[in-house]
Amino acid sequence: MWFQIAALAGKDIRLFLTRGHGLVLALLLGLLLIFLFSLAASGEQKISGAWAAAIFWMASCFSQVLVFNALYALEDVHKAREALLMAPMPAQTVWAGKAVAGGVILFVLQGVFIPACMVFLNLSAVHSWTWLLGSIALVDTGLIFLGALLGGMGAEQAGRDSLFTVILFPLFIPLLLAGIRLGGFVVEGLGLENPWAWVRLGASFDLVFGGLALLLFPFVYKE
């Protein structure tokens, strides 16, 4: 099964990156959001770490909607989705492959968003790179688990971008809260009494929604 997940993810990453326009759209959307919010805060002397983290995670959320819609749209061109359903593997393998591909692409996008945030939001330094990378990995895991599930739900549906946004964003609230609080701690290095409580919240979210995704995906991704 792992080999099949790798084959699926490799195919998706290759198609997404070589086709180009999906990556460009997601990147531009995220950078635009960061830039617009930096304009809104341009009068402020110093932006708080939590606000910077909120802008970063909002850019990441909107970009990942485009990413997963594009990943599932790859199967629509010649109805490859039918062939995936016929393949000798559980449907969850498709979910896992999409999640891995989405995670890699999202990580690449965030590699651009982080310096963009530092430049546009005038952030001087990062308190701890370990905490930064760890919190990104924690929150990204939840984003891709849910993103891969709901992307499959919206496959071949008209208006799936809207559907995705309406359903997905409210579900993300606990995870984004954890990301914002941890992000503030990463930037400022103070003001957060117990960061591990937010880590536990994020990890619990990942476990719960990862399990739900594994259970529900065969029912949402079928003819």
């Binding site: 080999f3 070589t18 086709r19 061109v77 010649h78 490859a80 062939a83 995936l84 393949a87």
Partner: peptide, 26 residues
């Protein structure tokens, strides 16, 4: 299965399409 739809990925080469399906079917 061979049907009305070709189940191909236009962005992959002809050979890459075959390689992908062979890997998926192990």
């Amino acid at each position: 299965s061979l049907g009305h739809e070709t189940y191909l990925y236009p962005g992959l080469t002809v050979l890459e399409n075959l390689i992908f399906w062979c890997r998926l079917y192990q």
